[in-house]
Design a protein around this nucleic acid. Structure first.
Lengths: 280, 280
DNA sequence: TAACAATATGAAATTAAATTTCAGTGACAT
DNA sequence: ATGTCACTGAAATTTAATTTCATATTGTTA
C-alpha cells in the first residue's frame, strides 16, 4: 500500500535510469504528484517511457495510477491501530483513541440498527398522546436529552430518572402512552418491572436496549444496536453515544413525518431562545 | 484539505447536474478515483464537461487534480461526510445521514481539540476538592453524564441544571473548586454571569464552549471544538455528542492520572452494581 | 404570458497527456 | 569482431481531458 516503501524495497531491481526516477520522487513526492510524466521525466533526466516503465515495475497500472498511490501514501500520518487506552498513553494518544473508538462504535451501531423497527418506533411516537423517557444512571442523561428534544416539538413529554416516579407514571399509563426505556444492558430489574406495569395498562413500551435482554422481552418494540462496550474504563462510553444518535434519528423521523409546517415551528422555538443569549 | 467535506460544504452552489456528480462520488469515492472522466460522467449520467466543471468548482485544477485530492482524502479509509437530511428521505436515508454527520462532526472535533488544554483541564480536575458541572437545555444532559462519570470516582461532584442552584454553588465556591460549564454557543447570559461569580471567588472555571464566546472569555480554560452544527432540524445534535466525547476524554485522563489502584476501584463500583441487575 | 437574459448542459473539436512501438545504443560474452 | 540482450528515448499512437460553441433550460421583466 505504501508506495514509497515499495520503491525502497524493489530498489535493486531498478535500472540506472529508473533509479534516477526513484531518486527524484523520493526527494520530493509532493512535487511528483503534481507533475506530468513529461515534467518528471525531464526532472529525472530520462525519457517519458522510462518513467512509465518505472511505474509499472511498482505494480501500478501506469503513471496516473502511480500518482494516485503516491498521493495516498503521503496523505497523512498513521492512525492509531489499537483502540484500547493504555495506562501510559499521553493526552494526545488517549484522546485520539477515544474519538476513534466512539466513531468505530457508531459505525457498528449504524450497521446493526434495524431501520424497519426505527420506522415502527416513529409510527408509535407520532401517534402517542404522551411520551415518557426513562433511564437510570448513564442512560438517564440520554433520557433527559430525548425529553429536551421532543419537548421542542410541543408535545406532552416526560422524563424520569427516579424509579418511583417511573413506576407511578406507568401505573397511570394507558394505550395512548408511549414509554421509551433506555438501558444498555436491559438487565436493570426495576426498569423491567416498570415495563411490565406499563404493558399491563396497554401502553406501548419501546426499549432502547440489548437484543434478547429481559427488558427487550418486556417491550413492544426493541431498538438494539451492537456496540462493543469498552470495558477499559469500566464505564459506559460508546453505548450512550450510540443511544443519543438513535434519539436524533427518532426525533428526525418524527419531524419529517410531521412535515414542513412543523419544521418552521422548530425554527420558531430556536429563534425564541435568542433573548436568553448574548448577540454575536 | 478534505475534498469530500468540501463537496458537502459547497453543495448548495452546485447545479442539478453537478449534484449528480457529487452524489456518485460520495456514494463511492473509491470507485471514483479509479475512473476516467468519461466513466464517471456516464455513471452520473452527465456529460464530461460537467464533471470537469464540477472539479473546478471545488477549486482544483481539473479532473486529474481532483482525483489526486480525493485519493488523499480517502487514504485512510473513507471518511465520514455530513449530509443534510432531506424532507423526502426515508428512514434508511435519514438514519444513515445522521450517523454520518455525527461521525464527521466527531472527526472535526478531534482535529480541532487542543490537547494541551485537555491536559491542563485534567490537571485542574485532579487537584480539585470539588467539581461542579453546569449546563442548560441540551447541555444539561451532558453535565449530568459528566456528573455520573465523575461520581464513580468517589470524589465530591455536583451537577446543576437550575440557574439558581448554579448561582448559589458559585457564590459558595472557593479556590479548591473547579466549575465546568458546558454551553455550545457560550452566549447564554446566565451561565456567563455565573462564571464571573465563580471567578471572583477564585474558583477555576473550565468552559466547554465555543472559542471567543462571552463564556470563553469568562473562563480560566476553554475547551473548544469546531463542530459544524446541523441547522437542518434546528436542534443541537452533533455538538452535544462531541461534548460527551470530551467528557469521556477528561474522565479517562483523570483515571489515568490517578493510576492503577484507582482503576481497580472503578471495577469495584461496576461489580457493586450487579445486584441491581438480572443475571445473564 | 411573451420576450428576454442568464445560466446550465452536452456534442464536437481541440488540446494535452500517457502509452506503445520500434530503432538505436552500449555492455557483455563468445 | 560480432551477435545477443537489456536499456533507453524519439516518434507515433492511443487515450484522456479540456475548450469551444450551439442548444436547452430556467428565471425574470414588461
Amino acid at each position: 500500500m505504501n508506495i514509497l516503501e515499495k520503491i525502497s524495497q524493489v530498489q535493486n531491481s531498478f535500472s540506472k535510469s529508473e533509479r534516477k526516477v526513484a531518486d527524484v520522487i523520493i526527494a520530493s513526492p509532493e512535487t511528483a504528484i503534481h507533475s506530468s510524466i513529461a515534467a518528471l521525466a525531464k526532472a529525472a533526466d530520462v525519457s517519458e517511457p522510462t518513467v512509465n516503465r518505472f511505474c509499472r515495475r511498482l505494480e501500478t497500472k501506469g503513471f496516473p495510477d502511480f500518482k494516485l498511490h503516491l498521493a495516498q501514501t503521503i496523505a497523512n500520518g498513521t492512525p492509531y491501530v489499537s483502540r484500547h487506552v493504555d495506562v501510559d498513553d499521553g493526552p494526545d494518544a488517549y484522546s485520539a483513541k477515544i474519538f476513534e473508538s466512539i466513531m468505530a462504535a457508531l459505525d457498528d451501531a449504524r450497521k446493526s440498527l434495524d431501520i424497519v423497527k426505527v420506522n415502527k418506533a416513529v409510527d408509535y411516537l407520532t401517534q402517542a398522546k404522551h411520551i415518557s423517557f426513562f433511564g437510570l444512571g448513564s442512560s438517564s442523561s440520554v433520557a433527559h436529552d430525548a425529553q429536551y428534544k421532543f419537548f421542542r416539538f410541543n408535545i406532552p413529554v416526560s422524563c424520569f430518572d427516579d424509579v418511583l416516579m417511573q413506576r407511578i407514571n406507568c401505573i397511570n399509563a394507558n394505550d395512548s402512552h408511549v414509554i421509551v426505556i433506555i438501558s444498555h444492558t436491559g438487565r436493570t430489574k426495576s426498569l423491567v418491572e416498570i415495563a411490565n406495569i406499563a404493558r399491563s395498562n396497554d401502553a406501548i413500551v419501546i426499549g432502547i436496549t440489548s437484543e434478547d435482554s429481559p427488558l427487550a422481552q418486556a417491550s413492544n418494540l426493541v431498538l438494539s444496536m451492537d456496540v462493543p462496550e469498552d470495558t477499559d474504563m469500566y464505564m459506559p462510553m460508546a453505548s450512550r453515544i450510540a443511544q443519543l444518535a438513535l434519539i436524533d434519528i427518532l426525533a428526525t423521523g418524527f419531524t419529517l413525518r410531521r412535515g414542513d409546517k412543523f419544521m418552521q415551528n422548530l425554527k420558531r422555538v430556536k429563534d425564541g431562545l435568542k433573548d436568553s443569549r448574548y448577540e454575536k
